[in-house]
Write a protein that binds this DNA or RNA. Structure first.
Lengths: 260, 260
DNA sequence: ATTTATATGATTGACTTAGATCATATAAAT
DNA sequence: ATTTATATGATCTAAGTCAATCATATAAAT
């Protein structure tokens, strides 16, 4: 019988991470562990193959080890659907020949994933995020540049004075930034070194796009990254009503509402 | 019919490394690649399973090398012992407070591995090699910097004009370089973009150390990286005699001979 | 509330793989 | 040189896997 969509997704996510930890599972084991029939197991695997998370073998399936950095983190987090949508919309802003900057953070990993699935010709992507760079490195027709800097173990991100300096050599048509919170005053992050780097990037940008899912609404943290006046575009799944309730008033061309 | 034992062993070794690079192979492909019958393929796989090099799946086999990049590269390459020794010696040149550059290449991965196992306090390591940076990112008391630049998919290396420019912001106490060949005239590499980047690094170096195992002796490729006059130190397992035979004459303080 | 769409498990037949057995050629032992 | 041991490929049967089809229960859409 038909079953709720979110349950299906949850099961497939679980299957993917099950495979990620086991590297390989025979079909039989997939059935047992998830308590589903062979038919459903096959269908789930087929779906995961289409999203490139898994490789089918005769009699089982392999985790696609490459993506595990990115997509493993993906699954653990909240609002993955909203982020996927934000990612797709962000990619739709890109045009051939552009130079863009992609920030660190899980939302931006979704942009990278969207870009991998629907590549833009002759695009130059700059980032300070290693997993993101590695995700995009394989995409044909794309130039991936890493900003140099101090490697932060936990976040796999490059930062520091050297990184801020390196950014000066660039001009970005589009800059996509993530953040931890947004409120009436603007957009917030908590790490000072991250913020100063993001500011350096904004300094080289023609157009600044913020990508924030609805869960960020109403949070203020230690550092004000940018006031709304410096944000050219906000991509969010938060409905306009909720924004207004938080006294975030943006002009219509300053906002793309993905709440529908 | 019965076949020489050493041939069998060679074939199985080849199969193991074939699997290591492909991660998974269906039985059919094993037969095709090694040009053997199904029966023999099954027997070979069974043997590799017993020595724990491989895991059988229904219809194929998985490599059991749970590899990190580094340890996998290790096995694939020639002269791993020599490179390990070179790596250890290179690390012994490092002192607390220094800033050093580590080049890309397998020999340098051994340096990184050696450094991970015997960390040097308060050391700044700069590199353009992603796997190397990732290897060292976890080491406590170490600052790892990546040079920014264009990401080359195949080698996981950062290069290009931007990279050469970024290097100018550094001063290195020690620079460790690898190369593809050495002869009377000096040290050689084949990729022009690699060489121009290495030259940029050398320009910022107090002291330049070349790390070349004996297999590189006598090879000249397209690009002359450096003449011997610009090499401050050579770390090699090639015996002095062999160097002299190739008309490489270095002063005693210009050479560390690891051939013993 | 009713209709539509679909996710599921069962079944079936074609195909693939596994493992055992066997004849044979040839390496290794004597 | 002769004998022994064994690595190989062919063949055959049992068991496993796959893709397609179908009835059905239930989520979504209206």
């Amino acid at each position: 019988m038909k079953v709720a969509l979110h349950l299906v997704e949850a099961r497939r996510t679980r299957l993917a991470s099950l495979l990620a930890t086991h590297r390989y599972l025979p079909l039989r084991q997939v059935c047992q562990r998830l308590k589903i029939s062979e038919a459903t197991a096959r269908r789930d695997l087929k779906a995961l193959v289409q999203t490139r998370k898994v490789t089918r073998t005769y009699g089982g399936a392999l985790s696609d080890y490459n993506n595990t950095f990115a997509s493993f983190a993906d699954r653990q987090q909240k609002a993955p659907r909203a982020k996927t949508r934000i990612g797709r919309t962000a990619v739709s802003l890109l045009r051939s020949g552009m130079t863009c900057y992609l920030d660190a953070g899980t939302t931006m990993l979704h942009c990278a994933e969207a870009l991998r699935q629907a590549p833009v010709e002759n695009l130059t992507v700059v980032t300070n995020n290693l997993p993101l760079a590695e995700t995009l490195a394989e995409v044909p027709g794309l130039q991936v540049h890493l900003i140099g800097g101090l490697l932060l173990k936990r976040q796999s991100v490059l930062l520091g004075d050297k990184a801020c300096g390196s950014v000066k050599a660039w001009k970005f048509d589009l800059v996509f930034l993530g953040a931890e919170g947004m409120s009436e005053r603007g957009v917030f992050n908590s790490q000072a070194d991250v913020v100063s780097f993001q500011r350096a990037v904004v300094g080289q940008a023609q157009r600044v796009v913020l990508c924030l899912d609805a869960s960020k609404l109403g949070h203020e943290t230690t550092e004000l990254l940018l006031p709304w006046s410096k944000v050219d575009l906000l991509l969010t799944d938060a409905p306009s009503k909720a924004l207004l309730k938080n006294k975030i008033a943006l002009s219509s061309n300053q906002l793309i509402d993905l709440s529908t």
